[in-house]
């Protein structure tokens, strides 16, 4: 028996919008720790890891570990039927081949049940080792989204370079080139508007902008994003979900031949 009640149902709606472009089908894993997902895109270039900790739910019952295969487009269709202020409850019986999403309006005058068929998905779980990153950049998520969108109108790839001067995003295409430098800026009114660079040593890596743009679908989940870079590792682009967990995207770099 599984029953997860999330008062801030809009969070789940945003989570689906954040991952459905990258991944088509995925297993949602439910355990005492929380509600989680790990999945790669079809070309195995990017990986998304989601965690919603059990403590973040108003009610969390998961009698035994359960893995539920879902088509994310279909989940998104179902969740789009929930109002933005609705309370969402996810329910599944042991051994059932369906999951139920229940939507309650805030004043309880409307209750809807949407039952969705589950699917068998062969997914590979990958071990992601803890790593020391050469540089971690924290910046407003909207700013990062804007940079990725702007650069993708010029080129297909971005070189992200971190030095003590700041973080530079560079691209080149048929019509020209572009460079955007963001300097560390801690002297802002609100901490979420700051750009903070923690650098152990300078690092420069090249990534496909198409994937980074896809990651920015998570922007509504968090006002800030952190970008962790090391020369021999995929970049980690993390959006924290307040009090609950995170959506982390891993993207393999482009490698010079």
């Amino acid at each position: 028996m599984l029953e997860l009640r999330l008062v801030q149902g809009s969070l789940l709606k945003k989570v689906l919008e954040a991952i459905k472009e990258l991944v088509t089908d995925a297993n949602f894993d439910c355990s005492a720790t929380g509600f989680s997902l790990q999945a790669m895109d079809s070309s195995h270039v990017a990986l998304v890891a989601l965690l919603l900790r059990s403590e973040g739910f108003e009610h969390y019952r998961c009698d035994r570990n359960l893995s539920m295969g879902m088509n994310l487009g279909n989940v998104s269709k179902m969740l789009r039927c929930a109002g933005s202020d609705d309370i969402i409850t996810i329910k599944a019986d042991d051994g059932s081949d369906t999951v139920t999403f229940m939507f309650e309006s805030p004043n309880q005058d409307k209750i809807a049940d949407f039952e969705m068929k589950l699917m068998d998905i062969d997914s590979e779980h990958l071990g992601i080792p803890d790593a020391e990153y050469q540089a971690i950049v924290r910046m407003p998520s909207g700013e990062f989204a804007r940079i990725c969108k702007d650069l993708s109108s010029i080129g297909d790839t971005v070189i992200i370079s971190v030095t003590k001067e700041g973080v530079k995003f560079s691209t080149a295409g048929d019509i020209g080139t572009a460079n955007i430098v963001c300097r560390q800026n801690k002297t802002v009114d609100k901490p979420e508007e700051a750009t903070v660079i923690e650098m152990q040593e300078p690092v420069s890596l090249t990534f496909a902008l198409r994937y980074l743009n896809s990651f920015t679908k998570a922007t509504p989940l968090s006002e800030t994003v952190s970008i962790s870079l090391s020369s021999d590792l995929p970049v980690v682009v993390e959006y924290k979900i307040a009090d609950m967990g995170y959506v982390r995207y891993y993207l393999a770099p482009k490698i010079e031949e």
């Binding site: 790669m40 195995h44 270039v45 990017a46 990986l47 590979e124 779980h125 990958l126 071990g127 992601i128 080792p129 790839t157 090249t206 496909a208 590792l233 995929p234 891993y250 393999a252 770099p253 482009k254 490698i255 010079e256 031949e257």
Partner: peptide, 14 residues
């Protein structure tokens, strides 16, 4: 040209 890396060459299956 740079070649696109693959996640599976960085993270191993558990």
């Amino acid at each position: 040209d740079a070649k696109q890396g693959n996640i599976l060459s960085f993270f191993k299956k558990t």
